[in-house]
Amino acid sequence: MERRQLGLMLRRFRDRAGKTQQQAAQAIGRDTARVSQVETAKGSFNPEELSTLLDFYGVDEAERRTALELGARARKRQRGRGYTDQLPLAFERLADLQADAKAIGFYESSIVPGLAQSADYMRAVINAGDGVWWEPSQDEVERRVGFRAELQRRVLDAVEPKDISFVVAERVLDEVIGSVSVLRGQLLHLLQLGERPNVTVQVLPRSVLNNPLIGCGLITLDFGAAAPQIAFVPVSYGPSTYHDQEADTVPMFRAYRRARELALGHDASRALLIDKLKELE
Rank of each mutant, 00 (worst) to 15 (best):
S207Y: 10
I177W: 08
Q229H: 13
T241I: 14
G43I: 01
G80E: 14
A24N: 05
E170W: 10
K278E: 14
E160S: 12
A247M: 14
L183G: 07
S44W: 11
E39A: 02
E195V: 01
L173S: 04
G238E: 12
A33T: 14
R16C: 02
A33V: 07
R4T: 13
E92A: 06
A226K: 11
V145C: 12
L218K: 03
D120N: 02
R258K: 15
Q202A: 09
A103Q: 12
V250M: 13
G194A: 09
A255H: 14
D60C: 04
E246G: 00
N127Q: 15
S207R: 15
L68H: 01
V145D: 12
Q245H: 08
E2R: 02
A158W: 09
A25D: 11
V59T: 15
S165I: 06
G265F: 10
A41W: 08
D130E: 12
V180H: 05
C216A: 14
I214N: 03
R73Y: 09
I177T: 10
Q245K: 00
I28Y: 09
D120K: 00
F166H: 08
K76V: 03
M1T: 02
A103G: 05
F166G: 05
S44M: 01
A27V: 02
D222T: 06
G238K: 07
A263Y: 10
L221P: 00
D222R: 14
K76A: 12
V250I: 15
W134F: 13
K76R: 15
L209D: 10
S240I: 05
S165Y: 07
A259N: 04
V38M: 02
K276E: 13
S236Y: 11
D96Q: 05
I126M: 05
V235N: 05
Q78T: 14
A119E: 15
M252T: 00
F13R: 02
G105M: 11
R171S: 14
T220E: 07
